[in-house]
Nucleic acid binder design. Structure first.
Length: 557
RNA sequence: GCGAUAGUAGCUCAGUUGGAUAGAGCAACGGCCUUCUAAGCCGUGGGUCGGGGGUUCGAAUCCCUCCUGUCGCACCA
């Protein structure tokens, strides 16, 4: 697994700038001072060179000199074989123009890495755990869960590509009130099927899937539960419904290209692990008794009120289980915990972190990403959703309507903390208005080129002459390819899969521009080979990025 | 009321340790298919970065304040 070109050349440049600054100090041009970190970036316009640094401006204060003078002194002392020239621009930027062979060497290395290009060296650190979706198994997943599923799985893929060891996990809320409500709902629907008038449970689930469950029970076992004592019947229905709902969840998720390393059952926390956690907190004074209930002193950790963990009837709250769950996560030895929650749970973050701190765990290890809400639009109008009445659009329906690829792209393309307006009509369009098709089309077009090339007896060959690639569109595409590993690294560091969505779009645009301008068939064979090598690499990067997003990369469209 | 999070082109959004003339896509307008997929390309117009103040060589970015949207503020999950 090689290093990444763009990081490598940046390291070389940084070192050279630092050396030049130190030389300046030795020469007495600059005073002794602590140097700022060297930051290199790709300038906004290609006329401004391959890389630029604001180092001269950053060090202006320390050196008591104006940035342009500093830049001049630095450039005079800069010695670097890879550098064509360095220019001072604007208020004191130094723009670096690399020798062209550096760029071609970078592409050659990328090609050499094959499918592994974009995968960074494995990090030898404790694994990161990503917990996401974790929807209650009380009904089908809806579009909000879909966003969590798409973003969560993309994040897991992204972290893995960036070399982090990762374990993904789904926390199953298979204990507590909501499951009792599920059982009661199935019970009501069951009795209804036999013409009995029953009052539907107050917090029951109104979805049609509950009726289906009742009907399936009848199909299998008929009326045999009618005679049963209600408590017994509820117990049976609870298990039947749970198994069924869980299977449906897994099915929906798999259809969405989402799988988990571990499905963690809340039931396994009861009663021992919950009790242990509560006892530990009681022992260190973080839990106290009031009004017959046990309270977590979360106000000591910045919460605006204390929270009940054990109700006055002795039943633990959801928070109690969650504390036990997170304690367990820490004890499983993860180096970092990432939770993806809906924004409606944000009030919870403080409490869980407070409890972890009280348990002597480092709350900094836990990162909670809050996903803002999804609003669906159809024909320009907001599609109303209400979970209570079962009037929500399910993930399965969404996939049915727009396809898993489009749905995943739309969910992943926005930053997590932006509310997402999901335009169903746009997601369905098979045209350039729809970004996911635009990217997939680039991939398919390249596949088509290779099919045609093969027919014409053309191939990349052993060592294509990459230096023949001198068109603006070719150079832009090469540079973009070389940026990819660094983009993976940044996106992973920022926990921002949307950066990969954007990158995939941008590189596709560069390919389409290239394609419109440069031909591959019917030109000199050496140039044709070089161009095939280039588009082959571009295709691999697009495929890799789509892979991170969990979107298919079609050979044909 | 308190808290979280947003407010950038007509619309949807990028823009992270503060940096060059604030970027895309869609929509609008004008061009490009007898050769590798027009699901594409090229071009044009479009902005008080919510308002106001501050910090500094420099602010969409940091600080203060106000306005607006969304989501929370249970012994529900």
């Amino acid at each position: 697994m090689g290093r990444k070109f763009s990081l490598e050349i940046k390291d070389i440049l940084s070192a050279a700038i630092e050396a030049a600054a130190k030389q300046g100090i030795d020469d007495g041009v600059f005073p002794e001072a602590e140097l700022p970190a060297v930051v290199l970036e790709v300038p906004p316009k290609k006329e401004m060179g391959d890389f630029a640094t604001n180092f001269a401006m950053q060090s202006a204060r320390a050196f008591h000199k104006n940035p342009r003078q500093i830049a001049e002194a630095l450039v005079e002392r800069l010695k670097l074989a890879e550098l064509e020239k360095a220019e001072i621009a604007g208020p004191g930027f130094i723009n670096f123009y690399l020798k062209s062979n550096v760029i071609y060497d970078g592409l050659a290395k990328a090609i050499e890495m094959g499918e592994d290009f974009g995968n960074l060296p494995k990090k030898d650190i404790a694994p990161t755990q990503v917990e996401y979706v974790s929807a209650n198994p009380t009904g089908p997943l809806h579009v909000g869960h879909g966003r969590g599923a798409a973003v969560g799985s993309a994040l897991v893929n992204l972290l893995r590509a960036a070399g982090y060891p990762v374990s993904s996990e789904y926390y199953i809320n298979d204990a507590g009130n909501q499951i009792d409500n599920l059982a009661a709902s199935v019970n009501a629907r069951y009795l209804e099927q036999f013409g009995k008038t029953v009052e539907f449970p107050e917090n029951g689930y109104h979805g049609a899937d509950i009726i289906d469950t009742a009907k399936r029970i009848i199909k299998k076992d008929g009326d045999k539960y009618l005679a049963m004592d209600e408590a017994e019947r509820l117990k049976v229905f609870k298990e039947v419904a749970l198994v069924e709902k869980l299977a449906a969840l897994k099915e929906d998720l798999e259809a969405f290209n989402v799988t988990f390393d571990l499905w963690y059952s809340e039931r396994t926390l009861h009663p021992d692990k919950v009790r242990e956690a509560v006892e530990e907190l009681k022992a260190n004074g973080t839990i106290y008794e009031k009004d017959g209930a046990l309270w977590l002193r979360s106000t000591d950790y910045g919460d605006d009120k204390d929270r009940v963990v054990i109700r006055d009837n002795g039943v633990p709250t959801y928070l109690a289980a969650d504390i036990a769950y997170h304690r367990d996560k820490y004890e499983r030895g993860f180096g970092r915990l990432i939770n993806i929650w809906g924004a409606d749970h944000h009030g919870y973050v403080c409490r869980v972190k407070a409890a972890m701190k009280a348990l002597g765990k480092d709350p900094e290890k836990l990162t909670v990403l809050l996903l803002q809400m999804v609003a669906l639009y159809r024909n320009g109008e907001l599609v109303k959703m209400s979970k209570r009445t079962g009037q929500s659009v399910t993930l399965a329906e969404l996939i049915e309507e727009v396809g898993a690829d489009a749905a995943r792209y739309f969910f992943c393309m926005r930053s997590l903390d932006s509310q997402l307006d999901f335009d169903l009509d746009l997601a369905k369009k098979q045209s350039n208005e729809n970004p996911v098709y635009y990217i997939q089309y680039a991939h398919a077009r390249i596949a088509s080129i290779f099919r045609q090339a093969e027919g014409a007896g053309l191939s990349v060959g052993e060592s294509p002459k990459l230096s023949l690639l001198t068109d603006d569109t070719e150079l832009a595409l090469i540079k973009k390819i070389e940026e990819y590993p660094e983009e993976v690294e940044k996106a992973a560091a920022d926990l921002a899969p949307q950066r990969i969505a954007r990158f995939a779009y941008d590189i596709s645009a560069l390919f389409h521009s290239f394609y419109a301008k440069c031909r591959i068939m019917g030109i000199e064979p050496e140039l044709a080979s070089a161009r095939l090598a280039l588009v082959g690499k571009a295709q691999q990067v697009i495929r890799h990025a789509l892979g991170i997003l969990g979107i298919s990369a079609p050979e044909k469209m």
